Computed example of a mutant assay.
Amino acid sequence: MLEEKVVVVTGASGGVGRAVVRLLGEKGAKVALIARGETGLATAATEVGTLGGTAKVFPADVADQAQVEAAADAVEKELGPIDVWINVAFSSVFARFLDVEPAEFERTTAVTYLGYVWGTRAALRRMMPRNQGVVVQTGSALAYRGIPLQSAYCGAKHAIKGFTESIRTELLNEGSDVKITMVQLPAVNTPQFDWVMSRLRRHPQPVPPIFQPEVAAQAIVHAAEHPSRREYWVGGSTVGTIVAERLIPGILDRYLGAYGVKSQLTDEKPTGVANLWEPADQTRDYGAHGSFDSRAKSRSPQVWLSQHRNHLLAAAAGGMATAALAALRRRR
């Protein structure tokens, strides 16, 4: 479904974005790679081409609206009209809220939230006159539930969710065929935990259970191909977190207050690398995976169930109807 389609991916040089562009390459898409780290971007572009797609690199800082617009112009000039825009790029600070400097909080918000705003704006300005296109927002269970040590990131993900809901209602009001959807992810084994700014005494880790970035990429690409669903939830832990937040938020507060900090810390020292102000992959390619391969899951049955929900419901309804007809025949 995405063969020869023009797909923009922000944060394409590493982590989930890197896994997404690889999968798009396998599908034969024309992939526009946006990020700051040119070493990671160059290697990612080579991978896309090797896998069967077409790739072009467009270095940009997504926090800068003018850079995002210029990148979008260049994409359409070099690859053609944008069919899909996937927002993935983010940055953050691991620290207690009062240990985060105001400029660092603003920068995290500019990259992680406003980066999605500027990407979505650039996409819609080009898609809406054509009345076609898809925007995919890469979210998180933390868009529903804040946790300690990640106040800036959680605030940004909550903001993305509200922003996306607002845009969706505007598109519906206008009767537009442009679609916008959001994919809420669990903890993922990406280089985020190797290059995120940290003021912790120990190296940060994803809150278990941890999934490989390919699980996230499969869900994101599926959402791009099937954008009529307003949201996709990836992983049983994401489902559990969102449901618990709806049903027992106070209990969840106390649980995270007691265990939320410890669950995000390893016994190792921090790397000292930080990509908040400058790209960590400017001279080194980090790839898609982080340092938790031995603990990360490469599959999620919940994702398959979520993607095939309509088919399962139809099958269940058909089974019930068949059983009802059989019961009626027996009564005759």
Rank of each mutant, 00 (worst) to 15 (best):
S13E: 00
G14P: 06
G15P: 02
V20L: 00
V21L: 05
V21N: 00
R22M: 14
G28L: 03
A29F: 03
K30P: 05
V31Q: 05
A32R: 06
I34P: 07
A35L: 02
R36W: 01
R36M: 07
R36A: 01
G37P: 03
G37V: 11
E38W: 05
T39Y: 08
G40K: 04
G40D: 11
L41R: 03
L41S: 05
A42V: 09
A42W: 06
T46F: 13
T46S: 12
G49T: 11
P59S: 11
A63H: 00
Q65C: 13
A66E: 13
Q67E: 14
E69D: 14
A70H: 10
A70F: 07
D73A: 09
D73Y: 08
E76T: 10
E78Y: 07
G80S: 12
P81N: 11
I82H: 05
V84D: 10
N87G: 13
V88T: 14
S92C: 15
V93R: 06
F94S: 00
R96Y: 13
L98F: 11
D99A: 15
E101I: 03
P102C: 14
E104R: 04
E104I: 09
F105S: 09
E106A: 15
L114R: 13
L114E: 09
L114C: 10
G115W: 00
G115C: 04
V117M: 08
R126A: 11
M128H: 07
M128F: 08
P129V: 06
P129N: 08
Q132C: 08
G133H: 03
V134F: 01
V135Y: 00
